[in-house]
Amino acid sequence: MPGQKIRVLIAKPGLDGHDRGAKVVARALRDSGMEVIYSGLRQTPEQIVQAALQEDVDAVGLSILSGAHMTLFSRVVGLLKENQAEDILVFGGGIIPDDDIPKLKEIGVDRIFQPNAHTSDIIDFLKETLHEENH
């Protein structure tokens, strides 16, 4: 998307307070020139989707370390669909077992980054995917 900054919502659904990863990712995306909104802790899927729509973001990054990802990620994806916003890219990270990744992809999560992923991988993923979509 030439001339236009990528807008990303980094959100923490669920009850865990582990925001180390979310904050590092938010800052790295910001440092790479994207506009980043960080939701703060313990947001419901409804709050996250509302923020994504209001802020007109290109992507939503969900961070969760509690194990509630299957339930909460699918709620976010479902709510985006209900609001005709399935064009918003959804990616996620946290403590997510290998077996869950194909299931999450099936429900519409575009990409999962496991522990030890590099922020540069996330940046490349967003730039490449959003760039392709716009051409």
Partner: peptide
């Protein structure tokens, strides 16, 4: 997490979190 946050298992906020960590 619901226990750590002082909410019951039947609270809507507990969805997906009960018994997880």
């Amino acid at each position: 997490l619901p226990t750590l946050m002082g909410i019951d298992s039947d609270d809507p906020l507990s969805e997906g979190e009960v018994g997880n960590c």
